[in-house]
């Protein structure tokens, strides 16, 4: 299974060299236009941050798809576990009062 999340996510010394001599993995996020959120595009192998940025630029912005790039060492990303899905996310499902449709407005009135 996805073993990329290591025990010590802050151990930057693992960057640059993996156990098998491979450059470490960086996740790439690209911003498609000014003001848009950065989205996960994929990953690259690189030895350091500048290297990762350049590789990300060459691999994921060849067609001018990005105006900004973030690179993040894959092993410092902390993710929720699939097993948590219930307790983590279900409680958000039944709170209708968080959504605008919950509130009634007199017919014919434009609220915004």
């Amino acid at each position: 299974m996805a073993a990329s999340v290591k025990d010590s996510p802050n151990d930057i010394s693992s960057n640059g060299k993996d156990t098998d001599g491979q450059w470490s993995l960086w996740e790439v996020f690209t911003q498609p236009g000014k003001g848009a959120p950065h989205e996960h595009a994929g990953s690259v192998h690189a030895t350091d941050a500048e290297h990762a940025l350049q590789n990300a630029r060459d691999v994921y912005a060849r067609r001018g798809e990005a105006v900004s790039i973030w690179v993040v060492p894959a092993d410092v990303i902390v993710a929720s576990a699939p097993g948590d899905a219930g307790p983590f996310f279900d409680p958000g499902n039944d709170k209708a009062y968080r959504h605008p449709q919950f509130y009634k407005v007199p017919r014919g009135v434009r609220v915004f």
Binding site: A2, S4, G21, L25, S43
Partner: peptide, 24 residues
């Protein structure tokens, strides 16, 4: 031909999410 390198790279990265290194 460059795109092919890119596509190989995308798929290798996808494969790496299954816990196997590109190197391997």
């Amino acid at each position: 031909v460059q795109d092919e390198a890119g596509h190989g790279l995308y798929i290798y990265c996808g494969t790496e999410t299954l816990g196997v290194d590109r190197h391997e």
